[in-house]
Amino acid sequence: MAKDIGFTHIALSASNLDSSIAFYQRYANMSVMHERIDEEAGKRVVWLSDKTRPFVLVLVQNSQPVPILGPFAHLGVGCESRRAVDDLCDRARHEGILSKEATDSGDPVGYWAFINDPDGHILEISYGQEIGLAVEASEA
């Protein structure tokens, strides 16, 4: 059985969990892994994951969340191609939530853009950052 050690999650507040779940499904390919009502706080809690690693985004219902991820602090999601980044940017632009157009910053930053989630937290979508490769190379 795997142990939960290392960086396992980040928790954010959300005013409408269903809207936030739908956002992270569309833009980060995440789905609900766990859902409950926190008995002590009386708030709905969900854990979302893209199932690529043992890490979850925890969203906690809050009627007035303060967006702590912005204007620069952000969650980062790697995409499979530049075209995937462009497609997500097109969708976000159409929805009025694209906050930074796709930019090619070269190595090691890659091709990236910023999108606002329903509560103003920032999601970075990118291609070419190769963070996983950098981590693997450091272990060699």
Rank of each mutant, 00 (worst) to 15 (best):
V135M: 10
E80G: 05
A22N: 14
S13Y: 12
Y24A: 00
V135Y: 09
A137F: 05
E40D: 14
L133C: 01
R53C: 02
A22H: 09
E95K: 14
P108F: 03
H94Y: 10
T8A: 07
Y24N: 04
L12G: 05
S13M: 10
I115W: 02
R26P: 03
D119P: 12
A84L: 07
R82L: 01
W47A: 07
Q61C: 01
Y27C: 07
I37V: 15
F7E: 06
D87F: 01
Q25Y: 02
Q61E: 15
G76P: 06
K43F: 01
L75T: 06
I68A: 10
V135S: 02
R36E: 13
A41M: 14
D86K: 07
G110A: 07
G6K: 12
G106N: 11
D104I: 01
L88Q: 08
A22I: 05
L75N: 06
K3D: 06
V45Y: 06
I21K: 13
G110I: 07
D4N: 13
R53G: 01
C89W: 06
S126K: 10
I37W: 00
Y24M: 04
Q129S: 10
A92C: 04
G42D: 09
K100A: 11
I131V: 15
E101A: 12
K51P: 02
P65A: 03
S19H: 14
I21M: 09
R93N: 09
M30R: 02
A73Y: 08
F23K: 03
K3N: 12
G42T: 04
N116L: 09
R93S: 12
V66T: 13
F114L: 10
P71R: 12
E80T: 11
T8G: 01
V56R: 03
Y127P: 04
G132K: 12
V77S: 05
L59Y: 10
Y27Q: 04
G128V: 07
A134H: 14
H34P: 00
N62P: 00
N116R: 12
G106I: 08
Y27H: 12
E101S: 11
D86W: 09
Y127C: 08
F55N: 07
E35R: 15
A41L: 14
A14H: 05
K3M: 13
R26H: 08
D4K: 13
E95G: 01
V46E: 00
L88T: 05
D50R: 00
S99K: 13
A140Y: 06
E95Y: 04
L75I: 15
V85R: 03
E124Y: 06
I10S: 02
D18M: 09
E101Y: 07
D104M: 12
R26C: 05
E39D: 13
Y111C: 03
Q61S: 12
P118Q: 05
H94K: 15
I68R: 14
Y111R: 02
C79T: 00
G76N: 10
H121W: 07
E136H: 09
S20D: 08
A22R: 13
G132V: 01
I5E: 11
L17E: 05
C79M: 14
E80Y: 03
P71M: 00
H94L: 09
S49G: 05
V66I: 14
S63A: 11
L75P: 03
L48F: 01
D18N: 15
A28Y: 00
R93I: 05
D107T: 08
F72V: 09
C89L: 11
L17T: 06
